[in-house]
Design a binder for these strands. Structure first.
Length: 553
DNA sequence: GTAGGGTTAG
């Protein structure tokens, strides 16, 4: 009988085993009176955990009198992995007062739970306990600690743990390198990488991923390319994980040519790589390509998930045609994920931007569960159509629900005020945001307030508001002010505006166009000519149309 | 004990 059970067990260990096969196995174990055996109990607990049946897992744990450390670890891990951290910690506490001694895996698992719930205090206590058990030099514990400390931004503590280890293994090196990577300290990461190579340790895919993940912007693209080149040169297999990180790196930097090249080299691209590529095209503004890759994925690739659907919906919103977006909506309905918060929020926005506010509102009303993003979506959408009172009403609902409005909520509200020309309401929300909700005003908020005041002719007030900003004022705020001065033909603030716009000249030529309009309005033709002649980089980009229209005015 | 993608703000 045992042999038969062992055979069944190995069959169950296959990745595609299900909850029902676990139940059958459990029943068999009970029938053979083996359920008291911690070995089988552990296996079944793990199977239940994989199938998200924590209740059965817990029942079995409770019913097993002899609890090996494997059994304890399995049930603790089961809770931790489904983010039931409180239960995981309670069990851990029970374990500590039981006769069983926790092992390195227990500490590693609980440490990870601390990191996932951002509980620095608990992690430190755990660290102390682990030292008490004499596990501070254990590779598994210390790599878990290095990971957790760096995930919580405590890179110095991570490095302290790392330096305490005499001859780190590859996983520990990788943990420390990716710690530096994830906190953006790529110079330290590369230095450590060199040290590692000097000790004779050979990198693997994890090392490369760790090195590259922190590189996010254009200035670091070269570094990424060098690392990419290094791994190819050293004959390191560009396994799909490394390749997918590269796809994501190149996509983030909007270098879609390289992203595609690496993507094509993938033997079998998984959902994450597809998503990185599609998001890359979308962020680079190539929405059509993003959607065509999405179509290809639907036909040949893995099934999309809510995250990807939200990405492609935002891409189709940018196209301002409802066709692609509603096709995606239909797809989402067919696959029963149209009511996911992520998907619905993107749907509301897409319908509103494509001219179908009503459908967007319907989607909102049909949502079984909402979060602040969904509320923000509907507020901005209503605002976009000038339906400010309804947007205000949604805001009240947020408060009734006990949700916390965020920065974006107020961007939406202020934009609604702008679209409806409600200066006093805008002022009120701006103050409430700062005083009641302690949200600091950001560029977007200032843009809307400046527009709101400026369009109402309160140019002096708008100017005072800009001057009250602590720190750097983004050129777009000056741009908003400039456009108000233009429409009121007010030349009082011309000099100060010109100063700020010209400082940011190369960034965006729209502002110099508007500035030349203002100058022209004031009859300062020499300045206009100078602006057109002396603006270096922006020169070629400056459209001639505003110039011509101003001359003929 | 180690890896990658995300919605709202015109």
């Amino acid at each position: 009988m045992h042999i038969k059970l062992k055979a069944l067990l190995s069959e169950l260990t296959q990745p595609n085993q299900t909850l029902s096969s676990t139940r059958i196995f459990h029943a068999l174990i009970i029938k053979n009176r083996l359920s008291q055996d911690p070995f089988y109990a552990t296996k079944i607990v793990r199977f239940y955990a994989i199938n998200n049946d924590l209740i059965s897992a817990r029942n079995l744990f409770d019913e097993t009198p002899q609890r090996s450390i494997y059994l304890w670890n399995s049930i603790i891990r089961a809770y931790a992995q489904s983010h039931k951290f409180h239960d995981a910690f309670m069990l851990f506490k029970h374990l500590l007062i039981s006769e069983t001694r926790p092992d390195n895996y227990t500490f590693a698992c609980v440490a990870r739970a601390c990191a996932e719930r951002s509980d620095i205090k608990a992690l430190r206590i755990l660290h102390g306990k682990l030292v008490g058990f004499g596990l501070e030099l254990d590779f598994i514990c210390s790599s878990a600690l290095v990971n957790c400390y760096s995930k919580l931004g405590l890179i110095d503590e991570a490095s302290f743990v790392f330096r305490g280890i005499d001859k780190p293994d590859l996983v520990l090196w990788n943990a420390m390198i990716s710690g530096y990577g994830s906190c953006g300290d790529w110079t330290e990461g590369i230095e450590l990488f060199n040290t590692m190579l000097n000790t004779g340790m050979w990198p693997d895919g994890y090392t490369m991923v760790g090195l590259i993940t922190g590189l996010a912007d254009h200035s670091l693209l070269k570094v990424g390319e060098t690392i990419h080149g290094f791994s190819v040169k050293c004959g390191l297999v560009l396994n799909d994980h490394v390749a997918s990180v590269l796809v994501s790196l190149y996509s983030r930097c909007k270098n879609m040519e390289s992203a595609c090249r690496v993507f094509d080299s993938l033997i079998r691209a998984d959902l994450i790589s597809w998503s990185a590529l599609i998001a890359g095209f979308s962020q680079a503004g190539d929405y059509v390509k993003a959607l065509s890759f999405f179509r290809e994925l639907i036909m040949n690739g893995p099934g999309p998930d809510p995250i990807l659907l939200a990405t492609v919906l935002s891409a189709s919103a940018q196209l301002v045609t409802v066709g692609p977006g509603s096709e995606i909506h239909a797809y989402a309905i067919r696959h029963e994920c149209s009511t996911e918060v992520l998907v619905s929020s993107a749907l509301i926005d897409m319908y509103a931007k494509c001219g179908f506010l009503g459908i967007g509102v319907k989607v909102f009303e049909n949502m079984p569960k909402r979060n602040i993003v969904s509320y923000n979506s509907v507020i901005s959408s209503l605002g976009l159509y000038g339906r400010a009172p309804e947007a205000f009403h949604i805001f009240e609902k947020i408060l009734e629900e006990g949700l916390k409005p965020d920065e974006t909520t107020f961007v939406g509200l202020l934009s609604a005020c702008c679209h409806a020309g409600l200066v006093n309401e805008g002022r009120k929300y701006f103050t409430t945001m700062k005083r009641v909700f302690r949200i600091e005003a950001k560029t977007e908020h200032y843009i809307h307030m400046v527009k709101l005041l400026g369009m109402d002719g309160q140019l002096k007030e708008a100017y005072d508001l800009i001057k009250s900003v602590k720190g750097r004022v983004d050129v777009s705020v000056w741009g908003a002010f400039l456009s108000c001065c233009n429409s009121h033909k007010n030349y009082e603030f011309l000099e100060v505006i010109a100063k700020h716009v010209l400082e940011n000249e190369s960034k965006d030529c729209r502002y110099s166009v508007m500035l030349s309009n203002l100058l022209a309005g004031d009859g300062r033709w020499d300045d206009v000519k100078q602006l057109r002649g002396d603006n270096g980089g922006a020169k070629g980009k400056m459209p001639g149309i505003s110039w011509i229209s101003d001359m003929s005015r």
